[in-house]
Design a binder for these strands. Sequence first.
RNA 1: GCUGGUGUAGCUCAGCUGGUAGAGCAACGCAUUCGUAAUGCGUAGGUCGUCGGUUCGAUCCCGUCCACCAGCUCCA
Length: 641
Amino acid sequence: MVELIFPDGSKQEVEKGTPFGDLLRELPGALRKKAVAVSVDDQAYDLNRVVEGGGRFVVLTTDSDKGLDILRHGTSHLMALAVQELFGKVKFAIGPAIQDGFYYDILMDHTLSPDDLEKIEAKMRELLDRGDLAFTREVLPSSEAVKLFTELDQPFKVELINDLGAENVSIYRLGAFTDLCVGPHLADVRKMRHFKLLSLAGAYWRGDENRDMLQRIYGTVFFKEAELRQDLERREEARKRDHRKLGPQLELFDIKEEAGGGLVFWYPKGYILREMVENFWIEEHRKDGYQMILTPHIAKSGLWKTSGHYDYYKENMFLIRDDEDQEFVLKPMNCPGHILIYKNKLHSYRDLPIRYAELGTVYRNERSGTLHGLLRVRGFTQDDAHIFCTPEQMEEEVSRCFNLAHKLLTTFGFKDYQVELSAHDPQNMEKYAGSEEDWIMAEEALLKTIENRNIPFKKIPGEAVFYGPKIDLKLIDAIGRGWQATTIQFDFNLPRRFDVTYINKEGQKEYVYMIHRALLGSIERFIGTLTEHYAGAFPLWLSPEQVRVLPVGKEHHGYARECVGKMRAAGIRAEGDFREEKLGYKIRESELQKVYYMAVCGDKETQAGTLDIRSKSKGRLGVKKLDLFIEEVVDEIGKKT
RNA sequence: GCUGGUGUAGCUCAGCUGGUAGAGCAACGCAUUCGUAAUGCGUAGGUCGUCGGUUCGAUCCCGUCCACCAGCUCCA
């Protein structure tokens, strides 16, 4: 007998070998219907398996993430079966469930086209409709599994089994498709019917660019048709918010083929966004004790040899050679420049902390395939700062960074973010700069800061880069997507390379603690993110065009111009539409261009000194005195909401 | 960088197995003087991403390069 503990705390003694199906029969019908698999002590089992040992017993349902993963994983098997039936001799790599769907990586001679996706979908439906499909599980010794997959001509599976080095492995069969797989899988394959194949892509076997390039098919699947529909709509919504589309459409920014990929052109309206972001950023940094500096865009390569970038980062740097055969580097980072300014004189511990901030434009020669709108570019402006401090000040400084980041991000409308702490791998200390003591101290400072704020976070050991541990903040946007923004990093490398020191209380030279931080990340990426978050309809204080005055007819042009003039004098970004078009036409254009307020003036308003106000988001707001409207708008802009 | 796809007017797109291109919107002109999401008529606009090849002839077929898209990889 073994003991199963249910989620409500109740316990039950059951015989080893009892089918889970028997246990389920005792559960409420609603729960039973939703059962996909069960788990005992987090080990998942197929519903048709039997109790092997005791522990915490949980029914994995169609409502849970785990249940959805099982569905998705199962559907990837179904897709693989369909591909095998359609194309015969193909070699399967891996086919896991992922964040919002599943994929399967396949090596085959035939090059898949989008048309093939439809054929595969049709075959999948046909297989389901046949009605005799079911997953069956077998356990066999690894040696036999190797033999089996060798016979099936599935070299990737053989490699996987060999690398596992386990005594036994499990395989699942679905029709004629046999896969190495831990499972579990659905008892009822008909649950997989609400699926959609989404896209094709290339993917290296095991992510290694020296190995086979496989064909990857992406798809998604849900338990309910409505959920699938919703997900496809969500994808559609995301496409509509795409900053790469909205940027040019709203005349904010664009990337020009003539100039090259990854280089951004800011149009007048987009420049206003930048200006607003940067001004607010500078204001808040000054308040928080930062000093603004500016460093050159190019510098002799010697500087980058000292920093180590020249050796480790060369393929990403743009090099410039002058007539006298002197080599320069277009700066890929601001740190060495900031260090040169710090090193201008000797610093006492009394001077610290020193916080140098720069909206520093850097250039990195990213591989062409990685470029992506404003999110991944070759020229971008980091909202950068370097803090030079003593070990004692470290924690306080990290905490201040966190506060400042929070202030900036929430003001820009991002209420949620995820926190990740990238820590060192104690097993591999030799690959890191700085002592283990330094690392532990720095990671504790980072950890304390996060814990003091009582927010959930993930600590990832071994994720840190060699020069120091870091905290990253990921923004969550209006439709739930995550975007990389803030990074707060320690640097144990550069102070040593550049001999960056301060004089401590004992009159001794000591290496300074250096914190590298970018709160928005880069201005480009941040504005790309903002654009998608607001779907191009920015809040008033950021809106490129805050008010557009719309005269009804020609005779109202004079008054309209007067209104625009007064608004501009009050600091409002106002325009007038003086074309001889019907009012409906002008309103439609303002709406499409996402102008925040429209102010209509006809006979009545011209005589009364008023405007008929219409807001993009709330529709008609009614007639207002010009002066009062200006006052209200100025007030609202000041609130930054 | 790699795999696959795409590139036709400012924008969105059409163009049947090769015979030098078309629509809607936008622009411009004329008429209309208009009250809360598109007034009508007309005009103009393209070296069909680039360079090269095949062909009597290339937007279409082949190759090169550039850019973009879905990913992989990369982001010390």
